[in-house]
């Protein structure tokens, strides 16, 4: 193809502006979006997006749950806003625009939580700035929310967040059991005084296994989780043949 003239570029861009043309003809079903997000194309296990916060905070279940909730909220909001504004955003400026939207959402969530639920914020507070470093959010904005209608984008955001959260919780649980022999320690900081007795000590006088809690342990357990998913997928495939 010969060099594109400025006129053509301009008319291409105008096409993107046209609301009718920007929605793909074939739309994914809600069921497919859900199963993709939770299993087939899981953010943590398959796309391997957002590994930095994923590995950094999953020393125990409660931390995993905290980052999971914060991610679900941010991803749902950012997908909503990006799907809502998708017809007005020219393609040359979409990346800075996504960064703008995500950074604003994270700041607004951070400030509002600090004002409305200070107790929860004191627990989740450290995770919220981490979300800006999570390429999962911008990945979904580019790959899904900018090409789909609002209900689908919101569902995708929520389910992708949920899939990510489930991996965080599984990783946190395994590392906490191996590393300190407990489960749900520190639950009361998140759930208040009712959760004071939720902590389960699995072994008496467990000496701890430092490797599981430190970052290398995160990589090892993550590798095992991915291997486990691949085995399950193989079994399912073998059965269906």
């Amino acid at each position: 193809m010969s060099a594109t003239s400025p006129d053509q570029i301009a008319s291409d861009i105008d096409d993107i502006f046209d609301e009718e043309n920007s929605i793909p003809k074939r739309q994914l079903s809600y069921g497919k979006i859900t199963s993709d997000a939770l299993w087939t194309n899981n953010a943590g296990l398959v796309q391997l997006l957002g590994l930095c916060p994923l590995l950094a905070v999953t020393g125990n279940v409660i931390n995993g749950l905290g980052l999971g909730i914060a991610t679900i909220i941010t991803l749902t909001c950012s997908n909503l806003i990006i799907a809502f504004t998708r017809n007005w955003i020219r393609k040359e400026i979409r990346i800075p625009y996504y960064v703008l939207v995500i950074a604003s959402i994270v700041t607004i969530i951070d400030l509002s939580m600090n004002a409305i639920t200070p107790e929860l914020h004191s627990v989740l507070g450290i995770f919220i700035p981490l979300i800006v470093t999570n390429c999962l959010i911008i990945g979904r904005a580019e790959a899904f929310a900018s090409k789909n209608d609002i209900p689908r984008a919101v569902l995708d955001g929520f389910m992708m967040g949920l899939g990510f959260a489930l991996v965080l919780i599984a990783l946190g649980a395994i590392r906490e059991i191996l590393g300190s022999g407990t489960l749900l320690s520190g639950a009361s900081i998140m759930f208040g005084s009712i959760a004071e007795n939720w902590t389960i000590s699995l072994f008496e006088n467990y000496q701890g296994f430092l490797l599981a809690i430190l970052p290398p342990g995160a990589f090892l357990v993550m590798g095992l989780l991915i291997a486990f998913k691949n085995i399950v997928d193989k079994r399912i495939k073998a059965k269906s043949v």
Binding site: P6, D7, I9, A10, I13, T85, W88, I89, R90, E92, I93, P96, Y97, L100, V101
Partner: peptide
């Protein structure tokens, strides 16, 4: 100039959203 028009539009809309 439609090319610079497109660029200016893009820049201005980014400024607006910012």
């Amino acid at each position: 100039d439609s090319h610079s028009v497109a660029m200016k539009k893009a820049g201005l809309s980014l400024a607006l959203f910012a």
